[in-house]
Design a protein around this nucleic acid. Structure first.
Lengths: 198, 198
DNA sequence: GTCTATACTCTGATAGAC
DNA sequence: GTCTATCAGAGTATAGAC
């Protein structure tokens, strides 16, 4: 049986761990940092979770669960331009709302994706292949410009995740008070509208 | 006086360190890994360099020296579309030729850019402001479409560096035998030609 | 210049009192 | 459930022989 205090403590630990892992990577993060951020002692952390690795794995698993939703939602029956623009918007919103999750993922890929290789080579790959086929069909039918569907999908990832993963750099260049996401939405809308016009 | 063996050993160490740091981040990398990759003993490593930190700092400094060159080369007197397309191409070539350097940089930014905050807030920021003004002038004059110059520059960074930083993911999705850079060049040419047309 | 041996610190994890 | 104390291993760096 799970008490309320157990649930809130687990939540606090996972939130603190997300903060620390996304900022320093798996090896760079320490249990001391996570414990301090969570307001608990280090042994108490390990009362709730078996190990540092278990915390990290749980965070990644949760993330991957929702990571593919924006791509999944592309409707083969919808209007091509509308569908792709909406996909870009959903992805940009994820960068805005969940920048730490994006950086956790980026850290993992940068290091060769050792823990999520299986996920990427199977689930993600199948989904990308499926949606690439849909987009290729749209291009074939002349409903959008003849673009490579894989590079199109990669471009959405690159352009949207950049605002989360490289937020530190963007903040230092534009000034921290400037919110990059408002301008980003308009800019990316311009980019994809132009790119896709038949 | 520096002997030839000293020069080659220093070079081997730096190359090995770039390999390991770019793949695991600063904390994730160990001197043992670097020593093994360089074919030297760990104490011998520290005969050539003062510390782990010194090696890392030297790699970053060298990188930043050339990191801005592609942006610097944008010529205010040139043809706007040609200049921006050539900039994108130079940057894409850097991702292709120096993916490890790109990942070293990405690791640093992901972690909040602690070691290169000064560089970004001063040199890089000044250069970006300067080139943004040039691009804004081109837009003002109607020579390219009216795009936000900062987001335009960020988009070049995002789209080109993605092929280096997320190479592991791209390889798992498209198959390792598929070279993503050939298709990328054509795709990005399409993107920027469309984006910039007045 | 290069190695073996080792000092010392940090960190993940456990023991055991309360 | 939570803490103090502590162990065991890893990792950076140094000492000193050759």
């Amino acid at each position: 049986m799970t008490t309320r205090i157990q649930r809130t403590n687990r939540k606090r630990i996972l939130d603190a761990a997300l903060e620390v892992f996304s900022a320093h990577g798996f090896r760079g993060a320490t249990l001391d940092q996570i414990a301090e951020a969570a307001g608990l002692s280090k042994p108490n952390l390990l009362y709730y979770f078996d190990s540092k690795d278990a915390i990290h794995r749980l965070l990644l698993t949760r993330l991957l669960d929702t990571w593919l939703d924006p791509l999944r939602m592309i409707d083969p029956m919808g209007d091509p331009q509308t569908e792709i623009l909406a996909y870009m918007r959903r992805k940009l919103q994820m960068s805005q709302q969940y920048p730490r999750e994006s950086r956790l993922f980026a850290n993992e890929i940068l290091q060769g994706a050792p823990r999520i290789e299986g996920f990427i080579s199977t689930e993600l790959r199948v989904l990308v292949d499926e949606k690439a086929k849909v987009i290729a069909g749209w291009a074939q039918a002349g409903r959008i410009a003849p673009v490579d569907p894989y590079h199109l999908i990669f471009s959405v990832w690159a352009l949207t995740q950049h605002y989360a993963d490289f937020a530190a750099q963007i903040g230092m260049i534009r000034g921290a008070e400037h919110d990059p996401f408002t301008g980003a939405d308009a800019f990316l809308h311009h980019v994809y509208a132009r790119m896709l016009a038949p």
